[in-house]
Amino acid sequence: MNEPIIHVENLCKKFDDFTAVNQISFDVSRGEIFGFLGANGAGKTTAMRMLCGLSFPTSGMGTVAGFNIRTEGEKIKSHIGYMSQRFSLYDDLTVFENMKLYAGIYGLSRQQTLQSIDEKLEQLQFASEKNTLVGALPLGWKQKVAFSVATLHRPEIVFLDEPTGGVDPITRRQFWELIYNAAANGTTIFVTTHYMDEAEYCSRVSIMVDGKIEALDSPKKLKEQFSVQSMDEVFRTLARRAKRTE
């Protein structure tokens, strides 16, 4: 199982004259928590969309979970989970109904569905709120439920696009426990964030500036490389080089 779960070579995405993603290459191994950092407008989201099969690369190649991102987008979709900062559950459905919907979408059998949902609710210690409308939950809880929904079908890899935006520090801490838990069970985590304390939790981190990956290593090594104390300083040193504005 040494082959990387994500393998990307010279991936590019152009919109007319604008090169959003410029020749990026990297590997992510199984079970890793991979932090994908970059200032707003650096091209993170575009790169992530290509990996999820939502957007077609202009050039370059890549595989996710062993499937080609150019030709096998549909197969990738059933092997990944996805959660975005924009809240992705339905407010007018209950926690249970939301979970059941996504279980159905990912083709889980009836028994698998109920079992998975029970597990998730237990993990969240949330069984009592099973029939609460999601709209009535506080944001932190919504995001935790959203994460559970994204991993309900036991994906090999889960993409998290700024999952903790706007969430309080305690809930963020709890959220990262969920992430660690999933990673310990073999799920690869691909996460973007603007919180540098979260970057410290990642096994490896890449930093994108103006569509290119400028740095890629473990947080410890990056700090050594730039001879600074925190990821925050690493990020600021790199992001300051950006010419592109939002």
């Binding site: 999820c52 924009r86 992705s88 993409f159």
Partner: peptide
């Protein structure tokens, strides 16, 4: 508008 469409598009549906 709510962003749920994006999640649906990433799913195999």
């Amino acid at each position: 508008e709510s962003g749920t469409m994006e999640v649906l598009l990433v799913s195999p549906v």
